[in-house]
Design a binder for these strands. Structure first.
Lengths: 245, 245
DNA sequence: TGAGGAATAGACCATTGGTCGGTATAATAG
DNA sequence: CTATTATACCGACCAATGGTCTATTCCTCA
């Protein structure tokens, strides 16, 4: 086999890309290392030059996810015009929006992300994301408590709850995307909107705010995005769903 | 090898017991099928006579866990003297108590249950438990809404939140047990108590109850149980921690 | 008693994550 | 422009894993 040398950073990035595609479509356990290196077009030796184990590859992938997610909300965090409530709302709305758009972008991908075989990958991503986001949330809540907007005795605890809600939303979204018929989809979207409304009110009350203060994205936004995507599915999603084993 | 025939039900139960011990101590992935059948003293053929796969064994184990858990709260569910709030409180208290006592009973076991390698097992148990408990919770909440005790527009959603809180508590308990020094333990217990207080108030507010209505077990209970166990560790826990690989 | 199914044994298999000795290429020094 | 070293890469090899298969023994019941 001809020996192909690439810039290490590029090679590493490629490896992560192929691993991501395979892990997401087949699950971390089912996607074998040989699959990954075959897709990336490298040898065993080359792989183990970059990562000490398959596990480490997963870890690196999760970290990259988390890094990207955090980068996506950096503007909200930096905006000096926002007060704590506004910042929290903007953060929630943005992460929800990102979630839905990612889902719409990679439809078939998301359909599988929540299947049991993807539990490990999913959990690792969430772990990494939590590690990144928790301090940020805590800081926002602390500030809100300080200036009297929020009323709670446990900022870390509330931050955890917020992230729990975020993760749970994932599940509901997954159900929406997993639904077969359009009628099912409609029901699932309805359930998602209802759940989000519940989370909004729950957060309002946990933070001691008047009902309606927390607003996680526009109602109806999900339906609009998904309807648009259904009508005009992305090519990547179609490709992913085609290559079944 | 001499051929030993046992009553199928007994054999199955034995298999589950040995699998449980091995999965909990070493994790689902790391505990190999050969380990399990060696511990159970049977052959490959015998194993596959009972379970179609290692996965199925895990599934059966999770189901047994969930069944036992549900059986443990049956009296609370059946008690006609309890109103919805009382029933919910009793349920929460009991499940918390069971959690802590299980943890104390199988100390070393719990220390490992929340390690990453046990994620799969843990998730399966929770999945099965959720499936059992969710309808029960929904029913209690519905009744509470009906008689005016609770105020919420989404009983299923609130039930989900309650179970999310339960699962999150797991994590905090795990941290408590994972702590090395006694000082660390003290801090972790403090954090646990704080978190439980937060969940209580959060549930109060989500359900539209006056603060202090929901009471998940006695404060200080955790510390008492754990102190007692630390002083007098159970033999099974000691054995489990001894047999490292 | 004997036939047939349930229960058990263990050799065997493909695949998996991981190791290892070696080779080509890039970077650096002389 | 070499010589040397470090890095990137290759692929044969390995033990262990989950799973299959055939053969045997045991129990049941007609």
């Amino acid at each position: 086999m001809p020996r192909i040398v690439k810039h290490p950073e590029l090679r590493r990035e490629e490896l992560l890309n192929h691993a991501q595609a395979l892990f997401l479509t087949h699950g971390y356990d089912k996607a074998s290392l040989n699959d990954v290196i075959a897709a990336a077009g490298i040898s065993k030796g080359a792989f183990y030059h970059y990562f000490p184990s398959k596990e480490a590859l997963l870890e690196a992938l999760a970290e990259r996810f988390a890094r990207q997610a955090l980068a996506g909300v950096q503007d909200v965090l930096a905006d000096p015009a926002l007060d704590p409530l506004g910042r929290l709302n903007a953060l929630l709305a943005k992460s929800r929006q990102a979630k839905i758009e990612t889902a719409a972008e990679a439809w078939a991908l998301f359909e599988t992300l929540f299947r049991p075989e993807n539990l490990v990958l999913f959990h690792r991503i969430n772990l990494a994301a939590s590690a990144s986001f928790s301090p940020v949330l805590v800081e926002i809540i602390r500030q809100g408590v300080e200036d009297g907007t929020f009323r709670t005795f446990d900022a870390e605890g509330v931050a955890d709850i917020v992230m729990q809600f975020g993760m749970a939303t994932h599940d509901v979204i997954a159900k929406a995307f997993a639904s077969g018929s359009d009628a099912d989809l409609e029901i699932a979207i309805e359930a998602l909107e209802k759940r989000v409304r519940l989370y909004e009110i729950a957060l309002d009350r946990i933070l001691g705010l008047p009902d309606g203060s927390i607003r996680i994205g526009e109602p109806g936004y999900v339906r609009a995005v998904m309807a648009a995507r259904r009508a005009n599915p992305s090519p990547s999603a179609a490709a992913a769903s085609r290559k079944s084993r």
